[in-house]
Nucleic acid binder design. Sequence first.
DNA 1: GTCTATAGACCGATAGAC
DNA 2: GTCTATCGGTCTATAGAC
Lengths: 210, 210
Amino acid sequence: MNTALTEPPASTKTSFKAQMLLARERAIVVAVNRLLAEKGFDLMTVDEVALEVGIAKASLYKHFSSKEDLAAAAMVRVIGLAQAFLASLPADAAPLGQLKAVARWMLELQIKGEMPSLPSQNSSLRANLMSNKAYLDGLMQISDQMGGWIEAAQADGSLSASVPPLVVLYTLYARACDPVPGFLKAGGQHSDEEIIDLVLATCFDGLKTR
Amino acid sequence: MNTALTEPPASTKTSFKAQMLLARERAIVVAVNRLLAEKGFDLMTVDEVALEVGIAKASLYKHFSSKEDLAAAAMVRVIGLAQAFLASLPADAAPLGQLKAVARWMLELQIKGEMPSLPSQNSSLRANLMSNKAYLDGLMQISDQMGGWIEAAQADGSLSASVPPLVVLYTLYARACDPVPGFLKAGGQHSDEEIIDLVLATCFDGLKTR
DNA sequence: GTCTATAGACCGATAGAC
DNA sequence: GTCTATCGGTCTATAGAC
């Protein structure tokens, strides 16, 4: 056997343990993300999460002190994915194209069943999220970037100037929990790609004839 | 005293009792409707409903045999309201105008906090609703009527022909649970009327410049 | 006096927390 | 693996109508 593998330097020992913890934490968050997308916060049980990860429920509470914290971690993860996607976009593209790309990305995540959705009514959950710095900072950064594109797109005439930028931003965010893709998917008449194209078209072009 | 009031015909005796039952049933359904709009199905408790109506929980179960039945009754009520609204529309108006009117009606109901919203994930609830004839019949009738308008609007060129009618129908239905009005209302920058106009405009005209 | 409907205690199950 | 709270659902004693 390779001694480099069986006898790593002492410094990697703690690093290894830390990495295991990190890996398990990631696994937990991924599981929560999926369950949150599948059943929503209220119907997701902590037991399910532990079962899916394959660890004891008590171990969950070593990482996250409440069910709300679990959900918050999943939201922070998605925010991070969104930030990574935004950063991967070519900086010199047309602003309207950037906005469309973001909307498409959210719809793809949703239709793949990987978009966690929290009930907007649950106040304890909202309070928890609103005191989560990582979530708020990420959301703010995304909103700033998209806000810039929205203003640029209105300035270059591609986006309607009669809709306030905040309304545009919220309308795009709302694609993350749009029920229409799910309805269409259940209908079975369209492929996922067609569904996304249709929803994007109705969102940007409207229902009326152009 | 008026004997006509103190001594009604015998037939009104049972009618009076029945009317009281009916009135209470209506009160229950209205309360459920409000709570369903406010907190959603999962967070609404049967005790709350009983408290709001001012009757004992056991009395609730004289009228409705389960929490799912309560929710279904609220949905049937809203379906009935929608049917009444559709029937009140002038039959000779332009089809696009009819569709806009329906979307506006749904948004108004939602922004007033009177649109019950069920989690689309809860399967026991869905099964219950899907076996409710009154609900299904009402929904079908509404869909037929709106489907007719959609096809007419596409035929007269006012509605985009490149969007399948079913997608149009679902997109309009989705206004009932659109989170954008709630976000805008929380922002406090717009009146309810402005919010509805903005959401309707983005829905029918799209985000892009025309 | 009888009978119905009500109020409110009560039970079992489940889920979050430790 | 345990503890506790909560919630959906039921049971029983009682008040009031006839």
